[in-house]
Design a protein around this nucleic acid. Structure first.
Lengths: 252, 252
DNA sequence: AAGTGGTCTAGACCACTGC
DNA sequence: CAGTGGTCTAGACCACTTA
């Protein structure tokens, strides 16, 4: 009778602990299959729901994924490094290469679900952009897909009056992107702020990023300022936390 | 019969969706109670486990917490802003004020579980510090507690040979902390790298940070370099993601 | 003492995957 | 078609909180 003595831990935790140790010891390879519900029921002599609770723990910890009709598998990770500071250095804009090209070094990064439209400024954005209520903003949304898997949702807000008629209002803002165009307009960003927060995803984010359970998101709010400290753009991003490492290099 | 037509969503999802909307609409205040298992069973005519699944969803999303014997409550958040760059500016060390004093503006920040000892260098650390295997490192561990709640675990590694005999080997490294002492030793850090990653906590982290389900952690790995690009310290931190906003200000 | 959430059982039917 | 995970029921006993 495995795990009979020794414990005031509930059974499902003991089972999960045993499997977790085995995973970390490498007994189950990333991408490989884990014991399923039936296997656990027989091996530990427990009911269906108890086996499910054990697997549910591992799944919510992001260590495993269940595939309906197939089985339960060990998750594997291969995050990309996003260098927050260098990627926005003003030297990189005029090259015409997209900013995110540096992030994906030799992997296949695509952009889809592009949407550009004008709208009323949301409250939290008007506060950051120092705009009056009921001002119009240009909203640029897109989704980044790495090696076929969506990894990032991005939505940026710019004062509509500032960018009217410029290529920024087009889906493709041209070489160097939005920041190069802001420079053309006489408002080059010289300073950035990125605020990072991590939390569990909302259902809509789970859907658009195709997130398995147990996967947090990182919410990045970037504000771009001109040299006169005028905020000219807000970029709100939602990243699949398992796909990214966020890197910041700076001086003492 | 509520929620009978309309749906190919499972019942527990429909119930969770309804409660989630109500929370976001403000029908349930942060800290206030949510309908419990019995309430949901009667209101929606479902079995115990189905009501639990619905609540379990909200709990794993970090929107609710269950307190045994009491009820289910809406979670409330009050994150602190950690300014990654300014807090490590070399001007702040000589003031003698602890670096983290800037993080907690008017709130009660304490440090406990302090531990200082020598150990063999772990593999991932020796790679970052450019050390040979089997070198000794000084390990300084501590836990930060904000308003009575633990929010951060920190463990730093320094080459033992470098800091031998200095106040760094004492639990209290003195005014200005480790970095001021490294300066005294002739190795002032001039450049930092912070790598951030978010994931669900391991059981030990859940325990030490007293994390409710549905709370990710942010893992921060900071490397401190001298002006000759020699890495002199690795600081691995594990933060309660719900307690922090990570802020980085930088130039284009 | 009454009510709450936590654990657990022993069934059932379903949709999906893989051979 | 056999096996998998997903949903759901109707019970049970327990430990804990609140009053």
């Amino acid at each position: 009778m495995p795990g009979s003595a020794s414990s005031r831990q509930p059974k499902y935790r003991q089972i999960a602990d045993e499997l977790r140790r085995a995973i970390q010891a490498g007994d189950y390879r990333p991408g490989g299959t884990l014991p399923g519900e039936n296997e656990i029921m027989h091996r530990y002599q427990v009911a269906r729901m108890t086996a499910r609770q054990a697997l549910g723990l591992l799944i919510n910890e992001g260590l495993a994924v269940a595939r309906k009709g197939a089985g339960v598998y060990v998750r594997s990770f291969r995050p990309i490094i996003r260098a927050g500071i260098q990627r926005l250095s003003s030297e990189t804009w005029p090259t015409g290469r997209p900013i995110w090209s540096a992030d994906a070094e030799g992997r296949d990064l695509a952009v889809d679900q592009i949407e550009v439209h004008e709208a009323d400024v949301p409250d939290r954005v008007s506060a950051l952009l120092n705009l009056a209520d009921a001002t119009k903003v240009l909203v640029r949304s897109r989704r980044y897909v790495l090696d076929g898997e969506p990894v990032l949702l991005s939505r940026s807000y710019l004062p509509a009056e500032l960018v009217a008629g410029s290529p920024i209002t087009q889906p493709d803002a041209g070489p160097g992107g939005t920041y190069a165009r802001l420079k053309d307009l006489g408002y080059p960003p010289t300073r950035f702020r990125e605020d990072l927060r991590s939390r569990m995803p909302e259902p809509e984010e789970t859907e658009r990023l195709q997130l398995p359970p147990g996967t947090p998101v990182v919410e990045i709010t970037r504000t771009a300022y001109t040299s006169e400290d005028r905020p000219v753009e807000i970029n709100e991003m939602i990243a699949d936390a398992s796909a990214y490492i966020f890197r910041y290099d700076f001086d003492a």
